[in-house]
Design a protein around this nucleic acid. Structure first.
Lengths: 114, 114
DNA sequence: TTGAAAGTTAGCCATTGCGCTAACTGTCAC
DNA sequence: GTGACAGTTAGCGCAATGGCTAACTTTCAA
């Protein structure tokens, strides 16, 4: 079932912000430093770093510091997990609508033949 | 690009709460009334109804009142959109890792033949 | 060795999120 | 028509979110 699943809480929360989604998208093109990632955004660095922290706590990215530059990398496992949860709901939903459609069809058929 | 996309903000925010995810899952089994949906949760009704409001504002469910009972229905279009966004990122990332793998392989081959 | 670059820490502020209780409005069943 | 049932409204409290500035640390390059 959907018992707790705190990982999903974090991941979906992280995804709920457009800045963070844009960062993830940028990281699909490869690793990047904080300032590189921050460049497109009209935002003070400390504010931006909070977004990075959220992404890292949700395990969607990893970051490693060498010298004075911190490099971020995408960590797509949790992204895949979120996708799987959504796909699962869709399947449940589709199964149900399929059954409904089949039922309706059977009913309609019975109607015409009776 | 990921320009704004306020719909995704709402959808991911809605999905970030385990109560709301559980409600969605329940709704895959078919429409249900508010009190029916609320039953599994140890929560006052007004609190629960805020969750319903969030789900409705994010366009993940629809609700309609007849008599004194309000019935909720899943509205899976936005769920599909969220899934698509995630799949898109995965594809971008996989493309990139494929190219990297191909590059590494080509390099390794060149190494052994030189 | 000194100045700029890249982060980092600390602290402030306004808004939103998520829970509660109390009291109210309709509707249904008897 | 009266009581219970299903939901709704209003308002409170606290923690988290998402932005800011100011000041600091560490590293690199000239």
């Amino acid at each position: 079932m959907d018992n707790y699943q705190p990982a999903l809480n974090n991941v979906f929360h992280a995804l709920a912000d457009p800045t963070r989604r844009a960062v993830l998208r940028q990281l699909t093109r490869g690793p990047a430093s904080i300032t590189e990632l921050a460049k497109p955004f009209d935002m003070a660095l400390p504010s931006f770093m909070k977004h990075i922290a959220v992404l890292e706590e949700s395990d969607l990215i990893r970051s490693r510091k060498t010298g004075r530059v911190r490099t971020c990398t995408l960590k797509p496992r949790k992204l895949a997990r979120a996708e799987r949860w959504l796909a699962e709901q869709r399947v449940l939903w589709e199964d149900r609508t399929d059954r409904l459609a089949a039922y309706a069809e059977a009913r309609a058929l019975k109607e015409t033949t009776s």
